[in-house]
Design a protein around this nucleic acid. Structure first.
Lengths: 154, 154
DNA sequence: TTGAAATACCCCTACATAGGGATAAATACC
DNA sequence: GGTATTTATCCCTATGTAGGGGTATTTCAA
């Protein structure tokens, strides 16, 4: 059967992946916190800054880390005055999200700090190691797929 | 300065890492859900099963994914009757966590399903790619470090 | 036009995560 | 013994994550 070796390797891979992600969150967390943002909020701000105004639905497709509940993130950004939501002119179901003046200013000031923090977090990693890691992670992600919910015995 | 290339590579690395972790969560989520568990709960159950009873503090050091608030996870496991908490005989501040009979049964039945799900999620990845990924991720994690909160100008 | 279906969004619940502060017990110091 | 500090745990608030269901609007079909 030789199932055990296989299983242990899978678990080791999962642990390595999740611990790396966790380590990153812990490293970047205080940087966001100091700016009064969260990782998800920054993701939205940056996307709106790069791509311009877009609907909630469009943002959902681009957004990192979240599937259904961008809602809360958006609500908090609106409450902070960084983002505004208007009803689309062409489809009254749609809401268009855009940065406020304050939101654009936030991106302006925080982006350099964010980049500097990333540079510092990864400063121990050589550039080619970085590229190799990126390739490997993308390959890993693409090779993962959802298990069948149940396998009808035949 | 050539700062931009560097910054873009860092962002690409972050995206690759977080998207991989997210993809994994989405793949494994339904498996946990079908068993009435969450990823964190399973992590605790498995640790207690492997290492035997231990204090909350000891578990905190081993636990994946969580820093301060194992509390909630433990509370939910106790409510489900899978784990029990007793006051330590030697140090009355400490609580010793252990699996109940029901908890041990849960591990027995769920472990094979969990291993099968992992095997299926990673079935597209060759064994040596897996080992390479593990090495790379561990190197990545070790090379990350926290940015200085502030850098006193000298 | 009317009804059915799809779409875009919102709300609700449960759980996890992060940080900070509170409490009780143990330990160190005097 | 008495006080201060450390340690182990618990509680509180805010946020994010995941899933499921509800509502308004649009589109499709008859």
């Amino acid at each position: 059967m030789k199932r055990n070796t296989h299983d242990r390797e899978n678990m080791a891979l999962v642990l390595a992946l999740l611990r790396s992600a966790q380590q990153f969150h812990r490293a970047i967390g205080p940087v966001f916190r100091a700016a009064g943002l969260t990782a998800s909020q920054w993701d939205v701000l940056e996307t709106l800054s790069n791509k311009g105004p877009m609907t909630v639905n469009a943002l959902l497709e681009r957004a990192l880390g979240t599937s259904g509940n961008l809602d809360v993130v958006i609500k908090n950004l609106i409450r902070s005055g960084l983002v505004e939501k208007t009803v689309s002119g062409t489809d009254r179901r749609s809401r268009v999200l855009s940065l406020t003046t304050e939101g654009r200013a936030k991106v302006e000031t925080f982006l350099p700090a964010h980049n500097a923090a990333l540079a510092e977090i990864f400063e121990g990693l050589p550039a080619d190691g970085k590229r190799q890691a990126i390739r490997m992670l993308n390959r890993l992600r693409r090779s993962m797929h959802h298990p069948r919910k149940d396998q009808p015995d035949e």
